[in-house]
Amino acid sequence: MIEDLKEKAKELLTSKKVDVVIGYEAGTYKDYASPSFAKTAKDVDRFVWNKNCVNNLAIYITKAKGKVGIIAKGCDVKSIIGIIQENQINREDVVIIGIACDGVEIDGEKADKCNFCDVHTPKIYDILIGDKIESKESSQDKYKEVAEIENKSPEERWKYWKDTLSKCIRCYACRQVCPLCYCDKCFVDTTVPQWIPMSVNEDNNMMFHMIRAYHMASRCIGCGECQRACPMNIPLNILSKKMTKEVEEMFGYTPGVDIEAKPAIQDFNKKEDPDKEFIM
């Protein structure tokens, strides 16, 4: 697979179809893989593909200049679909080198998202590396942790989030690593008006995470990068999954599936409201 991947990446660069190919190279800490940017065929020789290629490289396509080739797993392609749907890049400006993936690992353990993967073969791609892998319905409940929180009493739930989010140091790694958090100016960074004071405390932290979660509703595809990036090990996946679940139930919309679909947040087409009396 890696030879095929390198060959295709080199072809794209030498034929000048793209200015850069974003892939993975061997990291320098533990067995991590690290993002890698190839501008020449020679640079491609650094590329690797293995179980440790966890990072969602879609974060870099809104930052890159010119035409971009990107190595993308099925889950990463979901992000790319979202970015294109939201008009942040043109489909023709990105060459998706989709990769058939049967799961990645974080510190030797299967990544949470891989337990529920429905895109072992990416939904869209220009080039596919590896043989197509069929996705089977997962026997595990992807909303198990969400249900555990939902089943708590309001008081318990309040305490849980207060305690959990009080650990946050507001380094914004969750925001910075998220491919869909592409705003030029984040709400937490404005000073006039200042929506959230800079001080790190339970109230401000909770405010930040609540607004962030709302901003991700109908947009988060569950790549889990926010949770992986969090140095304080805050289970941010639970917040994102809760929003995804709500949107699925209310609007029948799942992000990252259909590039032609109108995201729930643009459409507001409530599932049980065929006459579209809700909002518009």
Binding site: Y60, I169, C171, A173, Q176, V177, A229, P231
Partner: peptide, 22 residues
């Protein structure tokens, strides 16, 4: 190139000391 501009490194650094007063 790959730096995403979060503050995990600076906030967790024992010598980084920049601050803002508000």
């Amino acid at each position: 190139q790959k730096c995403l501009g979060c503050a995990a490194c600076t906030y967790l650094c024992p010598t980084c000391h920049c601050f803002d007063i508000q």
